[in-house]
């Protein structure tokens, strides 16, 4: 924790949601990470940001950290559940290759936001991570603080169907949970967002409650199913078309990976909305997941032909 943060509640990770974000950003900037901004698309998790999916492929070293708003249409609860949100923030760190002291770095970052390991029981509990839509898997843990899962810690083994060589380490902090923990509140909407008191105090509910209510209605009741099926199919076709456009017919060149990957992300979000609307049956579900995975894998393969991968 920096001195200024301790002095100013608007910057204090224990007093404000924004202070938590700023502290993590500062911490990882000091570790040489590029501090990026959220990807400007609807994604289900911070992992979907191309700074993680695509940049974790290939030899080129890479260190980045960013906040990513994540949308899980199915998790909407109309603002009535104190823990569940259809839109929430993840703080994502990706380090390639994974440094030998990644666990220590992570623990230092917890200390930076005010979690004292002499007072709190921090544990690494087995949790193997898999993203069927991204064709990705890795081994790692859920990180527990006094019995609460506050982060995911993963050594990527495969992403977009490509073996990670070298392996990246990925940390995902569930910001709301972590903030609830350090602020000591039981309801996410009671989180102090700006750290101020009295009239000047802005809560998480002030910022997001209306959105949670409206988006829950949208995700479960209103989203136009016909349009979503159309969105999915168009994004899928466009992804394939763009990949074909950028393909130079050799192993060292591809001219259109990132725009194609955007379409893969779009298809994935359309699928998530359709899933929330309950119009995808159990058997169809698998086939949609496979279709998104095929797109992700094609993008991964194309990325390996670009300089971004370091060849």
């Amino acid at each position: 924790m920096t001195d200024s943060a301790a002095a100013n509640p608007a910057l204090d990770p224990r007093k404000s949601f924004q202070g938590l974000i700023l502290t993590l950003q500062t911490f990882w900037a000091r570790q040489g990470a590029v501090i990026l901004q959220p990807y400007d698309m609807e994604v289900g998790a911070g992992t979907f940001h191309p700074a993680t999916t695509l940049r974790s492929l290939g030899k080129k070293p890479w260190r980045a950290a960013y906040v990513q708003p994540s949308r899980r249409p199915k998790d909407g609860r109309y603002g009535e559940n104190p823990n569940r949100l259809q839109h929430y923030y993840q703080f994502q760190v990706i380090l390639k290759p994974s440094p030998d002291d990644l666990q220590e770095l992570y623990l230092h970052s917890l200390a930076a936001i005010g979690v004292d390991s002499a007072l709190h029981d921090i544990r690494f509990v087995e949790d193997d991570w898999e993203s069927p839509t991204l064709g990705a898997w890795g081994l790692g843990w859920e990180c527990w603080c006094d019995g609460m899962e506050v982060s995911q810690f993963t050594y990527f083994q495969q992403v977009a169907g490509v073996e990670c060589a070298p392996v990246s380490g990925e940390l995902t902090y569930g910001l709301e949970r972590l903030a609830m923990y350090v602020q000591g509140v039981e309801n996410v909407y009671d989180l102090n967002f700006n750290g101020l008191d009295g009239d000047a105090r802005i809560t998480y509910g002030d910022v997001f409650l209306q959105a949670e209510q409206e988006y829950s209605r949208h995700n479960f009741e209103a989203a136009n199913v016909e349009k979503l099926f159309g969105d999915f199919n168009r994004a899928e076709a466009e992804c394939k078309a763009l990949l074909a456009f950028g393909d130079q017919g050799d192993a060292k060149h591809h001219l259109m990976v990132l725009p194609a990957y955007d379409q893969c992300v779009k298809a994935s979000h359309a699928f998530n909305l359709l899933d929330a609307r309950g119009v995808i049956s159990v058997t169809e579900r698998q086939s949609y997941i496979l279709r998104v995975r095929e797109l992700a894998k094609a993008c991964g393969a194309a990325w390996m032909k670009t300089e971004g991968s370091g060849f």
């Binding site: 440094p99 081994l139 050594y155 990670c164 060589a165 070298p166 392996v167």
Partner: peptide
């Protein structure tokens, strides 16, 4: 039952 690679060395086959 399940094993993994890690770090800079994981680039080697």
């Amino acid at each position: 039952p399940k094993s993994m690679r890690w770090g800079a060395g994981s680039a080697e086959s």
